[in-house]
Simulated assay, not measured.
Amino acid sequence: MSAASLKARNGWLLSFADVVTLLITFFIMMLALNHTEISRIQNWTDDQLDQSYLSLSQAVQSYNLQYINVNRNTQGIFLSISHPEAFERGGFEVSPGLAAELSQVSTLLSGIAVFNAHETELGQRIIQEADQDGMDWRVEVVVEGHTDNDPIPNGSILRNNWFLSTMRAQNVMQLLHRNSGLRNDYFSVAGFGEHRPVASNETLEGKGQNRRVNIVINAGFTRK
């Protein structure tokens, strides 16, 4: 086979290689653009949570709350209740002291950034763009109950620590919901009993830390 024939026969390889290179370049550009868009939305979401945390933490400080602490972590905004007098002793009824503080906090909830993200021009645009891509802006207020490992006495209406932790979380959630005026679908309850301790149950101090209710506020985009 002559050199000219060989060159003509293999010429298509050069064109094919060019097409593959262009396709690879195209997909890299699409991935880069997509990553940039995801980063923009994630940064905006984090900003809504940061603003909400700042509002709540300032309120906790200004009201000098004793039963409720607020932190910001990877889960979102984290309000913890572990005061020894937060609930009626051995039961699940919220104490008057905690009820007063929950009332103060809950009246602020409807005004924080995550529940009003659609009211800013940028928030409106991002939420509309996400909606076109099949995504919903979703805010969650999850109230989690926890106990120490002390067994529930026989014959008690509480039955077990799962029940106790769930009822405490339920009562906290109802106060938040009623006083905040927020929609029902924002709220949910979980009871973990003694199964997620944060300290050793071998000491009274550790047991006190394990008897707690956490309020986790998170927000982000989810598929419809």
Rank of each mutant, 00 (worst) to 15 (best):
Q66N: 11
E37K: 12
Q42S: 13
I38Y: 01
I215W: 06
L22R: 15
T222C: 03
F187M: 04
S57D: 12
S188I: 03
S200D: 12
R40C: 06
R168H: 07
R89D: 11
Y53Q: 13
F187S: 03
D50G: 04
G76K: 02
I38N: 04
Y63V: 01
F87E: 05
N201H: 06
N161E: 10
V105E: 05
E121Y: 09
V189Q: 07
S57H: 09
S62I: 01
D148M: 05
P153T: 04
L13D: 03
G191W: 08
Q48S: 02
P84E: 02
D131K: 14
S15I: 09
G191L: 08
N73A: 04
S156Y: 05
L175H: 08
N73I: 04
S156G: 07
S39G: 05
A3Q: 13
M173S: 11
R89H: 13
D148N: 15
I28R: 08
L175V: 09
F92K: 06
G76M: 05
Q132N: 11
L65P: 02
G181K: 04
N149Y: 00
G91A: 06
W137Q: 04
M167S: 12
L23G: 05
N71I: 02
E140R: 15
N116M: 03
F16W: 07
V70H: 06
E140S: 14
T107A: 14
V216L: 15
L65C: 06
T147M: 14
E140W: 13
G11R: 13
V198H: 01
V105P: 03
Y186G: 03
Q42K: 14
M29Q: 14
R211G: 03
I217V: 14
D50P: 00
E140F: 14
D133E: 13
M1S: 14
A100F: 01
Y67R: 04
K207A: 04
T21W: 11
A32K: 10
L108D: 06
Y53E: 12
G206M: 00
W137N: 04
R40L: 11
K7A: 15
K7V: 08
H35R: 13
Q75V: 02
I24N: 06
S80E: 13
N179D: 15
F87L: 03
G97L: 02
N116C: 02
S5M: 12
G76C: 05
P153Y: 03
V70A: 14
P197G: 07
I81H: 09
N161A: 04
E85F: 09
L13N: 10
A17G: 07
N10T: 11
K224M: 10
S165M: 06
N184M: 10
